[in-house]
Design a protein around this nucleic acid. Sequence first.
DNA 1: ATTATCTATAGATCTATAGATAATGC
DNA 2: ATTATCTATAGATCTATAGATAATGC
Lengths: 191, 191
Amino acid sequence: MRVSREKFAENREKILGVAGVLFREKGFESTGVAEIMKAAGLTHGGFYGHFQSKEDLALEVSRALIERVKIRWNEIITSAPNAPLDALLNHYLSRCSVDDPGGSCVFASLVQEVSRSQGAVRSTFNDGLSALVDILSEIVPGDSAQERRAKGFTTLSAMMGAVILARAVESRELSDNFLFTTRDALSPAKS
Amino acid sequence: MRVSREKFAENREKILGVAGVLFREKGFESTGVAEIMKAAGLTHGGFYGHFQSKEDLALEVSRALIERVKIRWNEIITSAPNAPLDALLNHYLSRCSVDDPGGSCVFASLVQEVSRSQGAVRSTFNDGLSALVDILSEIVPGDSAQERRAKGFTTLSAMMGAVILARAVESRELSDNFLFTTRDALSPAKS
DNA sequence: ATTATCTATAGATCTATAGATAATGC
DNA sequence: ATTATCTATAGATCTATAGATAATGC
């Protein structure tokens, strides 16, 4: 059944959208093409009219989601010129981040899986992480540029680690501790 | 081919050993039972004489590897009574940790995958993480017990995040930055 | 413990068709 | 407006591989 050019583009976006959610929720490997297409309201076979392979989709989704993280971070920073780091920490180290992996940071969901891979997806993640360090380096406190850059690395490590561990743990109390203790420790008010 | 009781136990240990390495290197899901048995020098079918299922193996491996992390940490702490935290940081935040996932901390390899699961493996990871926070709380600086406990959470987040990101990134320079900048920042000498 | 086999499921390919688009004709 | 062409889709099918089981052998 043929579909209009417009509908075709719409279907493609739908596939990218649901894949983005499912990949972040369940990982690349545990998410099947058939499952993605079903969630998009389409049939399995139709997938290959839009993408060459699952890997191809994974790459496009990765690029889009990483771009989104960078944009979101910049929005938050710009909208809170007095306390940009606090604003970012409040956003990133939140229960919302932890409880909705399908709608949150790609890295917090997929870094480990991607680390074990090679190729375009891994490179995209690499560049994305580097960009996040750069963003953090500009809003983090510190007397010199080197100090601030160093703090960019440590801050990203702590943020990512906290969300990952807050998700790993089963009790709400432990989870909150990873999340909010780290958030408070990273806040410029503290240091 | 029947095998002695002793050899049977030996084979079982071999399976647990290679599975521990392969799981940490490639993740639970991407490691097949046939692959594990081949690495152990046995045939696929023989697996089910030792374990009920792959999930059963994953649980036993997880328990053993988590126990090993706790033991290792305690050894390091005991062997450096003057600077236990520095000793632990030097061990954990090292290139060796980053470059040999198959021989390093289970959590740094598998937390994300386990976070997406439910059941016994997840609970085991939960308890293990909680135990690591407890260990850290006793060697971390701080004026009160609460402060030290808080520092236990933040320290574990930063350690785990740094190793995970140091593995994710492709360039050695970025990787070293995550690793050593975080190590230095967490050192009691600094704070 | 080995070997062969079973069943389920994954990614990917193929064929026919619906129906949108482009070319043609009035 | 009609006709021809093009193409995205559905749905069946293919191939490979996974975990698991059964039969066999020592």
